[in-house]
């Protein structure tokens, strides 16, 4: 059986599956691996997670036995794919299966931020709820509003589908326009200047990386309508934290819902002092069903690649 090194603790059913299909070297902790080359010695494949940095130097240092890297995520910005390719290492990920869970998370953030759920929770739990007051916790209605989706890939389209149940008018910004069967009536914008002013709610769903680094900056925030709601369940790097925090303090952005951060898990501590943000610890795909499906697809992709096949979750 091929040898598989797993960098982190995985859901128990997935560890059991790995042990069945591979000579699996499991890691019973969540501490980041610092000596990957030594740990992967003799392994045919490595199963890593977001948070493990597989940069060019790490990949160069991998033993020659390693032919495949699988990542327990759809995003692969933590892997230097070019460096892997140069060494003849194939990379696979977990596409499709977490779109729904991540879209649910984005919808939760939209509604929780707009309706001030975090503040309401804290008020009730404090035992200080004194009853109704005229402007107490008045939020912004979600239904019938305009939703702008930045990045209309699988997750963005799932959000659009869910948001249609709320009668939201869907706008999207992407590099290319989708065909009508995927667009489903959503309104395409080929530039930020037409897109941003319509976004009463803005959902970031673009990939990370240099091309989108700090996309949501002061200049773009200024083009959003006063009182907009912003959510990010994609990548922390999409946001310039200082700009977003300033807009949340001034009220130009009414509220934000965030699942991802620059430098996570050590996020900018100023977010924690804001009442008008709902914060989640990067758990967009964290349902039992989704994590199970992610484990299955990445393990089957690794098996296929080691057998010389081309699975549909091949990244490069």
């Amino acid at each position: 059986m091929p040898v598989l090194f797993v960098t982190r603790r995985l859901p128990a059913p997935i560890e059991a599956l790995a042990a069945k299909d591979f000579d699996a070297r499991l890691t019973p902790s969540d501490v980041a691996i610092t000596d990957l080359a030594a740990k992967a010695n003799g392994a045919d494949a490595v199963l890593c997670c977001p948070g493990d940095s597989l940069d060019a130097a790490t990949i160069a240092a991998l033993p020659a036995s390693v032919k495949v890297i699988g990542t327990f995520s759809v995003g692969y910005d933590h892997i230097d794919v070019a460096a892997a390719k140069a060494r003849g290492i194939k990379v696979c990920n977990t596409p499709d299966v977490l779109s729904v869970a991540t879209a649910e998370c984005a919808m939760l953030l939209i509604m929780a931020a707009a309706r001030r759920a975090g503040e309401g929770e804290r008020l009730v739990r404090s035992g200080q709820w004194a009853g109704w007051a005229p402007t107490q916790l008045l939020g912004t209605q979600v239904s019938d509003r305009r939703l702008g989706i930045f990045g209309m890939g699988r997750i963005g389209r799932e959000i659009a589908r869910m948001a249609r149940g709320f009668n939201m008018e869907i706008h999207y910004r992407d590099m290319t326009r989708l065909p009508p069967d995927l667009e489903q009536g959503a309104i395409f914008h080929d530039n930020d200047d037409s897109f941003l002013p319509v976004c009463q709610v803005l959902s970031l769903n673009a990939p990370g990386g240099e091309g989108t680094r700090h996309w949501l900056n002061n200049e773009r925030i200024a083009k959003l309508p006063q009182g907009a709601v912003v959510v990010n369940a994609a990548r922390g790097t999409l946001v310039d934290d200082a700009a977003l925090i300033a807009a949340l303090r001034s009220g130009h952005i009414a509220s934000a819902g965030l699942d991802v951060y620059n430098g996570e898990p050590r996020l900018n501590p100023e977010y924690m002092s804001l009442e008008n943000v709902v914060l989640l610890p990067h758990l967009g795909s964290a349902t039992t069903e989704t994590r199970d499906a992610m484990g299955r697809i990445v393990l089957s992709g690794i098996s296929a690649l080691l057998s010389g096949e081309t699975p549909r979750n091949l990244v490069a």
Partner: peptide, 17 residues
């Protein structure tokens, strides 16, 4: 403050869809 890594099998929720 978060500041720790959450295991891939920890704190899982339930899918709605």
């Amino acid at each position: 403050g978060w500041r720790y890594r959450i295991g891939q099998g920890d704190l899982l929720g339930v899918r709605v869809t």
